[in-house]
Deep mutational scan, measured.
Amino acid sequence: EFTQISGYVNAFGSQRGSVLTVKVENDEGWTLVEEDFDRADYGSDPEFVAEVSSYLKRNGGIKDLTKVL
């Protein structure tokens, strides 16, 4: 089950073990991109978060400006 990723309007994530599946949706709710990120592939949590965040930004993730990150 996908849940909204904090700080984004149209990005959602689903966690299974160490694998986080993220997706970005358009205004109609269609999935634009979907990608798996395995936490085990990264040396640290900040590196993992930075990679996921960068992916979302590159692929149309819209920041939720009503929330302070």
Rank of each mutant, 00 (worst) to 15 (best):
N26C: 09
F12H: 04
R39Q: 02
L56G: 00
T66H: 10
E47D: 08
T3Q: 10
G60Y: 07
V52F: 02
G61E: 01
L65Q: 09
V52Q: 01
L69C: 15
V33S: 12
K67S: 12
D64P: 04
N26L: 08
G13A: 13
E1F: 11
Q15H: 08
V24A: 00
T21K: 09
E25N: 11
Y55W: 15
G7A: 03
F37R: 01
Q4V: 11
G7R: 04
T3P: 06
E1N: 11
L69T: 13
W30C: 15
S54G: 11
D41K: 11
K67T: 11
V52T: 02
A50D: 09
T66W: 11
W30N: 11
L56N: 00
S53L: 14
E35K: 15
E28H: 10
R16V: 08
P46D: 15
Q15V: 14
F2G: 05
E28S: 11
V24I: 14
A40H: 08
V19T: 05
V19L: 05
V68K: 11
V22T: 00
W30F: 13
G60K: 03
T3M: 09
F12W: 11
V49K: 08
R58G: 07
E25M: 15
P46K: 15
G61R: 03
F48I: 00
E1Q: 12
Y42K: 00
R58K: 13
E25Y: 15
F2A: 04
S44K: 01
V24C: 04
S14N: 08
Y42W: 06
T66E: 14
F48H: 00
K23W: 13
G13V: 12
G13R: 06
V22S: 00
L69Y: 08
V49S: 09
L69V: 14
E35R: 15
L20Y: 08
V49Y: 15
V19Y: 03
G7P: 07
L32E: 05
V24M: 03
V22M: 00
V33G: 08
R16L: 07
R39V: 02
T66R: 09
Y55H: 05
A11C: 13
S44C: 06
G43T: 09
E35S: 10
E47S: 04
D45T: 09
D41Q: 09
V68E: 14
S44F: 02
E34I: 14
E35M: 14
E47N: 03
D38H: 03
R16E: 03
K57F: 10
Y42V: 00
S54T: 08
S44R: 01
R58N: 13
G17C: 06
S54R: 12
G13D: 01
L69A: 14
K67A: 10
K63V: 14
N26T: 09
N10K: 05
S53D: 15
D38N: 08
W30S: 10
V24K: 00
L56S: 00
F48G: 00
V49I: 13
D36C: 13
E28R: 10
T31Q: 05
L69D: 14
K23P: 00
F48D: 01
Y8W: 15
T31N: 03
P46A: 15
T31G: 06
F48Y: 06
L69M: 11
S14R: 15
V49G: 06
S14F: 12
V22K: 00
D27F: 09
T21S: 08
V19F: 02
L65T: 13
D45K: 04
A40V: 07
A50V: 06
A50T: 07
D36T: 14
T21F: 04
T31R: 06
R16N: 10
G60E: 02
D38T: 02
V52L: 10
E25H: 10
S6P: 14
R16A: 07
D64Q: 09
V52H: 01
V33I: 09
V52A: 01
P46Q: 15
L56P: 06
D45C: 15
V33K: 07
L20H: 02
F12T: 04
R58W: 07
D38S: 03
S6H: 12
V68T: 11
A11T: 03
T21R: 14
E35W: 12
V24N: 00
S14I: 13
D36M: 13
D38P: 01
E47V: 05
I5F: 06
N26I: 06
F12I: 03
S53Y: 14
F48P: 00
F37L: 03
S14P: 02
R58Y: 08
G17P: 00
G43C: 13
S14T: 09
A40R: 12
S18W: 05
Y8L: 04
I62G: 01
F48T: 01
G61H: 02
F37S: 01
D27Y: 10
T31D: 03
D38K: 03
S53M: 15
Y42I: 01
A50H: 09
K63L: 14
T3C: 15
A40G: 07
D64S: 10
A50P: 00
G29R: 04
I62D: 02
K67M: 11
N59R: 02
F48L: 03
R16Y: 06
V49C: 15
L56V: 06
D38I: 02
V33F: 12
E51S: 12
S53P: 02
Y42D: 00
V49D: 12
S6A: 13
N26R: 05
Y55K: 06
L20V: 06
F12Y: 12
A11K: 01
F2N: 05
E34H: 09
G17H: 02
K63C: 14
T21Q: 03
P46W: 15
Q15W: 15
E28Y: 12
E51W: 07
S54E: 15
V24D: 00
E47I: 06
D27E: 14
E25S: 12
V68F: 11
T66F: 09
G60Q: 05
I5N: 04
D38F: 03
G60A: 05
A50W: 08
V22A: 00
R58F: 08
I5P: 04
Q4K: 14
T66C: 15
E51C: 13
G43M: 11
T66G: 09
D27P: 11
T66K: 12
G17F: 04
E51P: 00
V33L: 06
D41P: 01
F12A: 02
Q15C: 15
F37V: 00
L56W: 00
G13W: 15
N59T: 06
S18F: 05
D45P: 02
P46V: 15
N10Y: 05
I5S: 04
P46N: 14
L65P: 13
T3F: 14
A11Y: 02
E28A: 10
V49A: 11
L20S: 01
L20Q: 00
V22I: 10
E1P: 09
S18C: 13
L65D: 10
D64N: 07
D64L: 07
K57M: 12
K63A: 11
Q15M: 14
F2Y: 09
A11E: 00
E47C: 08
E28M: 11
L56A: 00
G13E: 07
L56F: 00
R58S: 10
E47R: 03
I5V: 05
D45F: 13
Y42M: 01
T66L: 12
V24G: 00
E47H: 05
S6R: 11
A40F: 07
S14C: 15
Y55Q: 04
Y8M: 05
V68Q: 11
G43L: 10
V33M: 09
D41N: 12
L65K: 10
R16K: 10
G13P: 01
D64V: 12
A40C: 15
L69E: 14
